[in-house]
């Protein structure tokens, strides 16, 4: 576990997000304790990305509460990081992208340099450290986004479909980094479209549909025998646009 005091568990209480009269997140309640890798799955438009953004504090809920029980009055934001589906790279070198994130946390130059060198080495990006980040390949950019998040030493890492536009090789590399981060104590909460990836990575699964949690279960139980007909249909590959 990173940081001085754990911010988990995270609890959502009857969280609603309504936009334009539509309830995109519709009364979600759940709790995430430390230690697991949670994978959120569901059809397009289920609210997976919104769910992550709500948890990470990028969007305020219309109703309900999001509580970091361990934060105890402290701002939990600095103990979290998020990696987006499409990595957003600043117009500077790979190294400078990571250094920038660390400078926002107020780290001194020496500590920044050490952290940057460490995460670049561990993500296999040392060779391209000085190249402009935006001219890197999609896979390299996503690895760099993960390295940037890793350098922050977050207690909780949110990943929004981090491999959706990557080839199998790059996806494998990303999954390995996610496993390593988790092994070092970072709580993983991620979304994916890829059921294979969900099976490979998930300790527990949240199945979302129409902004509601249909099922929240340990991964083996969910994949071997989903409790809800909707989740079962989704796992069979059926299209759920009508339900």
């Amino acid at each position: 576990m990173h940081g001085p005091q754990p911010i988990l568990p995270l609890e959502l209480r009857e969280v609603v997000l309504a936009l334009g009269g539509r309830r995109l997140i519709d009364g979600i309640s759940c709790r995430f304790a430390a230690g697991l890798k949670t994978v959120i799955i569901g059809p397009n438009g289920a609210g997976k990305s919104l769910f992550l953004r709500l948890c990470h504090g990028l969007i305020r809920p219309t109703a309900g509460e999001i509580v970091w029980h361990g934060a105890a009055g402290r701002d939990p934001a600095s103990a979290q990081a998020m990696v987006f589906q499409r990595p957003v790279m600043l117009r500077r070198s790979a190294v400078a992208n990571i250094e920038y994130a660390l400078s926002l946390q107020g780290l001194g130059r020496r500590l920044r340099r050490e952290r940057v060198a460490e995460v670049l080495a561990r993500t296999g990006l040392s060779e391209i450290a000085d190249r402009p980040a935006r001219v890197l390949s999609g896979g390299e950019q996503q690895k760099l986004a993960l390295a940037r998040a890793w350098a922050l030493r977050p207690q909780v890492l949110f990943l929004d479909e981090p491999t959706s536009s990557l080839d199998p090789g790059a996806s494998h590399a990303i999954e390995e980094i996610v496993r390593t981060l988790h092994a070092e104590g970072t709580r993983i909460i991620m979304t994916t479209h890829d059921l294979g990836q969900a099976r490979r990575l998930a300790d527990e699964v949240v199945f979302l549909h129409h902004g509601r949690i249909v099922e929240h279960a340990p991964a083996p139980a969910f994949f071997d025998g989903p409790a809800s007909p909707l989740a079962a249909a989704f796992l069979r590959g059926e299209l759920l646009w009508r339900e």
């Binding site: 953004r53 990081a81 920038y100």
Partner: peptide
């Protein structure tokens, strides 16, 4: 383009301005 990423890193509009 940057807003979500910068806010995720802890930079609001004021801190984002020089960037």
């Amino acid at each position: 383009e940057y807003e979500e990423q910068l806010r995720s890193l802890g930079a609001g509009p004021g801190r984002a301005l020089p960037t």
